[in-house]
Nucleic acid binder design. Structure first.
Lengths: 345, 345
DNA sequence: TTGTAAGCGTTATCAC
DNA sequence: GTGATAACGCTTACAA
C-alpha cells in the first residue's frame, strides 16, 4: 500500500550493503556484526521501514495466521472461545483472523475458500448449524493445513477436536433436577442433527432411565435456533400438557430464559412449581430472576486448548500428528432457579 | 502451504499455454478465446487449483482486506458493528479481519503494526479505553491507508468518523426522566477523558439546566469500566446521599442493570421510587426486570456506514477524499424502568 | 561477516 | 488471441 513505501532495497542502497545483509540484520541474524545490525535498525526506524509480511509469507510459503470460524461472534460462548484462542496465539507469535459463518453453510464454504487462498497456517472452527456435509473442509487435509474443530464437530473428517462431554453434563443437570424432587422433567432440545444437542438429549434420557422415570416424547420440544422466542414458544406448549412439567432442562441459556419468562407470566413459581436449568452459563443467567442454574461450558478454556493443539500441529506439520480429541470438564452451577429443598442428599 | 500446491505454472505446462494466458483465462479476460477459457477452468477445477492471494496481493501491491479493531467482541455493541461491516464488505468483495484491543493501548499499537505489515486495504477502529495518544494510527495516514473511526474517535487525527450524537441522546434521556417527574437525577458516567462519555455527561447537564434543575456534582459517579459491579457500587453510594436520587441516567446498560439490582435489594421500587435509564439497548435490557429504558445506538447501522465510507475511500484512494464525519440518529426506547404517569405531556 | 542470485505465485507490459 | 519477461518485496543457499 505505498505512497512511498520503504523496502529493504532502499535501506541497502542507502547503506551500501546488499539486501541480504539488511534482511539478516533486521532478523538479528548472528552472522551479522553487532554494529551493522544496530545501524540497519537505526536507519530502518528513521526511514519508517516496516516489513511487508505479504512478501515474506510468499517467500517462506507460509503465514503465521490462524483462521477462526465461528457461527456468530455475538454469542458469548464463541466470543470467549476466541479470546482463549487469541490469548495463546499471540503469545506464540501467531495472528488470529476471525470469520462468522452466521450458521450458514454457504458462508462457511466461502470462508474456507478465503482462508485457503490466504494461506492460513491453521484453522479453528465450530460448524454452522446448517452444516451436515463437511467436504469443504477436506481441502485443508489435502493441503496439510491443520484443522481443529471445537464444540460442534465433524465426525466424517480427520481432524482434531475440542469438545465438552455434553452427554455427561446433561446427565448431571437432569440428575440434579431429580434430586430436588422433580418427577416430570421436560427438555427443550436443539437441532437434533447436531451432535452436541443429540448428546444432551441422550444424557437427559439416561438420567431419567437411571432413576426409573419413564421417558415421554411429549416432554421434549425442539427449538432449532435456540432463541429466547423459541424457548418461550416451547414452554407455552409444555404448559398446556395434561400433566404439566415440574422441571425443565433447556439445551441453552437463551431458551431457558424464554422459558422462565413464560412461566412467570403464567403466575407459576420458579423453582417451586417448575424448576428450570439451562446450559452454557451466559452472563444473562445471573441477571434473570430467579438466577439460572446452568452448565459452565468453559469457553475460554476451550479456546486456549484448541489454539495449543493447532499450533503444535502447525509447527510439527511434517511429523504427521494423529488427530486427537480433548474433552473439557464442565461445571454444574446451581442457582435459585433450582434451589429447592433436596429430596435426597 | 503446499503439500503439492497447483499453480498457474502447472496448468500452463499441462496445457501447453503460457502462464499469462492461464492467468487471463482464470480472470475471464475477454481477449482469451471462450474455448480456451473454458478448458483452463475445467483443468483448474480438475487439478484442484486455487489462487494464491498472497502472491496476487504482492504483485498488485494491495489486498482486499479490511482490518477492524474493536475493544472487545463480547460487547454486543461491537459485535453488531462488526456484523454491519461484514454485511457491506462481503458484498463489495472485501474480507474482514477482526482484532480485539481489549481496551489496552499496548495491544492496540501491536495490532496497528500487524495490520500495516499485512497491507490491509483500510481500517475501521474504535479506540481502546486506555488510548489517549493516537500517534500509532498516524502511520496509516502517511501510507495512505484509509481509516474510519467509529464510536470512540480521535480528534487529533485526520480520519473519517461514524458516531452517534451522544450529547443529544443523553439530553433526550434526561429530558424524558424529567418529563415523568424526576427531580433529583443522578448520572453514572463513564471515563470522562473519553469523548463519548463526557458528551453524555454534558447532555445530561444541559437537560437539567434547561429545566432549571441545579447540577449537583454529588449526583455524578464515575464507573470507568462500565461494568455491572461498578454500576452497583455507584448506586450504593448514591443511595446513601442525604437526598437520594429519584431518577438515574446510566452511561450504559450494564451499569444500569447493576443499579437496578442494588435498588431492588434496597426494597425500593422502580420506577416509582427511582426511575432508571441506560444507554445502548443491549439484549439484556429486555431481560432485566423491570425492562430497561435505553438509547438504541444502532450499532449495525454504524458498521454498515463505516464500511461504506471506508470502501469508497479505498477505491478512490488517489482522489484524496476529505475525511468526513457521519452522525447516526439514535432512538429513545421507553420501557418499564421509567414508565410512570407523565407530569407534563 | 557479507554478497550474489534464484525464486515464492502472480500480474502487467510489451511484443507478435 | 497468445507468449516472453520483468517485477512485487522478501528469504536463503551458496559463494566469496
Amino acid at each position: 500500500m505505498p505512497g512511498t513505501r520503504v523496502t529493504i532495497k532502499d535501506l541497502a542502497k542507502r547503506m551500501n550493503l546488499s539486501v541480504s545483509t539488511i534482511s539478516r540484520a533486521l532478523h538479528n541474524h548472528p552472522s551479522i556484526g553487532a554494529e551493522t545490525t544496530a545501524e540497519v535498525w537505526k536507519l530502518a526506524k528513521q526511514l519508517g521501514y516496516f516489513p511487508n509480511s505479504v512478501a515474506s509469507n510468499l517467500r517462506r510459503r507460509k503465514t503465521n495466521m490462524i483462521g477462526v470460524i465461528v457461527p456468530r461472534i455475538d454469542i458469548t460462548f464463541h466470543s470467549h472461545v476466541i479470546s482463549g484462542v487469541e490469548e495463546v496465539a499471540y503469545k506464540m507469535g501467531y495472528n488470529v483472523t476471525i470469520y462468522q459463518s452466521r450458521d450458514s453453510l454457504e458462508r462457511e464454504v466461502a470462508i474456507t475458500s478465503i482462508l485457503q487462498t490466504n494461506m492460513v497456517a491453521g484453522i479453528i472452527a465450530c460448524l454452522a448449524l446448517e452444516t451436515q456435509d463437511c467436504s469443504h473442509f477436506a481441502r485443508f487435509n489435502s493441503q496439510k493445513v491443520p484443522l481443529v474443530f471445537y464444540d460442534r464437530v465433524s465426525n466424517e473428517l480427520e481432524a482434531s477436536k475440542v469438545i465438552i462431554d455434553d452427554f455427561d453434563a446433561a446427565f448431571r443437570v437432569t440428575q440434579h433436577l431429580i434430586n430436588i424432587g422433580c418427577k416430570r422433567i421436560a427438555h427443550i432440545a436443539g437441532c437434533l442433527t447436531t451432535s452436541i444437542f443429540s448428546a444432551r438429549l441422550e444424557g437427559y434420557k439416561a438420567a431419567l432411565q437411571k432413576n426409573n422415570i419413564p421417558f415421554d416424547q411429549n416432554m421434549v420440544c425442539c427449538a432449532s435456533n435456540l432463541t429466547y422466542e423459541e424457548g418461550g414458544r416451547c414452554t407455552k406448549k409444555l404448559l398446556k400438557l395434561p400433566e404439566m412439567p415440574d422441571g425443565m432442562f433447556c439445551a441453552n441459556d437463551y431458551t431457558a430464559i424464554g422459558a422462565i419468562q413464560v412461566i412467570k407470566k403464567n403466575n407459576l413459581r420458579i423453582p417451586e412449581d417448575i424448576a428450570v436449568a439451562g446450559f452454557s452459563n451466559y452472563p444473562v443467567s445471573t441477571i434473570i430472576e430467579p438466577a439460572l442454574t446452568t452448565i459452565d461450558d468453559r469457553a475460554f478454556e476451550m479456546g486456549k486448548t484448541a489454539a495449543r493443539m493447532l499450533i503444535r500441529q502447525v509447527e510439527e506439520r511434517d511429523v504427521n500428528i494423529a488427530s486427537e480429541t480433548i474433552v473439557i470438564r464442565t461445571d454444574l452451577i446451581v442457582r435459585d432457579s433450582t434451589r429447592r429443598q433436596p429430596v435426597q442428599p
